[in-house]
Computed example of a mutant assay.
Amino acid sequence: MTTENPPRLRLEQYLGMQIRRERQAQELKLADVARIAGISQGMLSKIENAQVSTSLDILSRLCDVLGMPMSKLFSQYDQPDGSAILVKSGEGLEVVRRGTEKGHTYHLLNHTRGPKKNFEAYMVTMDDASEEFPTFAHPGTEFLHLLEGELVYRHGNQLYPMQAGDSLTFDGDVPHGPEKLVQVPIRLLSIMNYGND
């Protein structure tokens, strides 16, 4: 699992980048923007390249020239850093669950961290067309999406034939699990949402 946390930009870098991006988006020349804002071309270049800190008055004039509200200039600077977690193909943590001994492989793709788990996502691989299958029951809701193969899935007393591309959503408290593996290998994305209770 990989997280990317680039260093946070200094305010001068962020503002310079925003001004340059807006100027270039409007295809305006550095010299023209500087002249209308009443500053030198060299000063505008230094602002865009974060070589100087500038006054709010100059920033306000630049915003007027570019036709953007000053609030937009600062709007995304203090947003929280992203916290997405990337799991590259084949890097999911292999875990042991009931069914592992039946030739089923469970790769945990991710789950929310902390004392309370909200969800877990698994890539389940089944390549043994055995007749014995574990049943599962857990709190919350489960979503299945069949990526490869064909199977019959049991939820309570109901049977659901599934082919590649099919999805199934159900209450996790009711006993459930594969009933019959029709065509192996099977790859199944399983997402369990435990809610916030």
Rank of each mutant, 00 (worst) to 15 (best):
M123R: 13
L168C: 09
N196W: 04
G99E: 08
L109W: 01
Y153C: 05
M192D: 04
E142T: 12
D166F: 01
D197K: 06
V182A: 01
M162H: 04
Q163P: 00
P139W: 05
N157H: 12
P185N: 06
P185A: 00
G156Q: 02
S167H: 06
I191A: 01
K117D: 03
E101Q: 07
M126D: 01
T100F: 02
Y153N: 03
N110P: 00
G195F: 13
R98H: 06
L159I: 02
H104W: 06
T135F: 02
E131W: 07
A164S: 14
E150C: 03
G92S: 09
T141N: 05
Y194N: 05
P178Y: 11
F143Y: 14
A129M: 11
G140M: 07
G92C: 06
E148P: 12
A129F: 02
T135M: 06
Q158R: 15
I191V: 15
Q183D: 08
H111W: 08
T141A: 06
K116N: 13
K116S: 11
N118K: 13
E120Y: 10
A129C: 08
V152F: 07
L108S: 08
E132F: 14
A121Y: 08
T125A: 04
A164N: 07
L168I: 10
S130W: 00
R154T: 07
R97L: 15
D173W: 10
E132W: 10
F143I: 04
K102M: 04
F143P: 00
G103P: 00
L159Q: 15
V174W: 03
R187F: 02
D128P: 00
L144T: 02
I191G: 03
V152W: 07
K180R: 15
M123A: 06
G140R: 04
F136V: 12
K180W: 09
P178T: 11
G99A: 10
S167V: 02
V184F: 05
M123F: 03
H111E: 12
G99D: 09
S190Y: 03
R97A: 13
L151A: 15
H104N: 11
Q183A: 15
H111V: 02
D197T: 05
P161M: 01
H176S: 03
G177S: 09
T112C: 04
K117Y: 03
